[in-house]
């Protein structure tokens, strides 16, 4: 009876019934991925243009830095529960918290990406007659791409974690297994759920890390 909980969680994962149906691992994983993608994409549509503008013009930089810093102090669980209570069951409440929590990393990634371009290079582009938009899209953005992807990476990691807390207020995703396990005192199930989320988070992180490396300028990649 007193078996290692990690072995028991492997048994839990190995049961074939876990791998089908609406509460099955594939569906829960897809839900989790869907929440994450939706949260990051919506946040990116808002934050990246703003971050690019801040980085290119250099205006409101202090405000952007302060916002990103202050947002880190916001407790994720607090936002998730607050919106759930205010907006009821459904996807709007968790989505709103995902977006708010993803914005700081994306904003910081976007403006630091643009800022990282050597001012001499930017001036050279300007002297060659490039318009400001061309400078942004053909010089600053390609040079800063790894930093921008870094921001996306940070946001994704944040939303994967928060998507799990969304299960606490009645949504799907992999967090379900942890909260079900907590309710029924099924520690092996909690471990199984945790392992699944960690695997998903690490896979996404590594994929974005790879993308970050691949988008780097060639000269920067060779030491």
């Amino acid at each position: 009876m007193n078996q290692n909980p990690f072995l028991q969680s492997l048994h839990w994962l190995a049961e074939s019934s876990r791998w089908s149906g609406p509460d099955g691992i594939p569906i829960r994983t897809l839900e989790h991925l869907g929440y994450t993608a939706l949260g990051v994409v919506v946040a990116a549509l808002l934050a990246i243009p703003l971050g690019l503008a801040v980085g290119h013009t250099g205006r409101f930089k202090g405000l952007a830095v302060a916002t990103a810093g202050a947002a880190r102090a916001l407790p994720t669980l607090g936002l998730v529960t607050l919106f759930a209570l205010l907006m009821g069951i459904g996807l709007t409440a968790p989505l709103l918290s995902f977006v708010i929590l993803a914005i700081p990393s994306l904003l910081a990634g976007a403006y630091s990406a643009i800022e990282s371009a050597d001012p001499a290079t930017v001036d050279a582009a300007r002297a060659q007659g490039m318009t400001e938009l061309q400078i942004l899209t053909r010089v600053e953005l390609p040079l800063g791409m790894p930093l921008l992807i870094g921001g996306v990476r940070g946001a994704t990691v944040q939303v994967v974690a928060t998507a799990m807390l969304a299960a606490y207020v009645g949504n799907g995703g992999l967090g379900r297994y942890i909260f079900q396990g907590l309710g029924s005192q099924n520690y092996p199930q909690m471990i199984a759920g945790s392992l699944l989320v960690i695997a998903l988070a690490l896979l996404l992180d590594l994929a974005l890390l790879l993308l970050q490396r691949l988008t780097g300028p060639r000269s920067a990649r060779t030491p």
Binding site: Y187, G193, L195
Partner: peptide
């Protein structure tokens, strides 16, 4: 450190007791 930071907090809170014997 980078990988550690990618691990969400709740799963870590759940796994640690199994690894080091603390209570959840």
């Amino acid at each position: 450190s980078g990988l550690m930071y990618a691990i969400p907090s709740l799963p870590l809170f759940v796994l640690l007791p199994g690894l080091i014997g603390t209570s959840v």
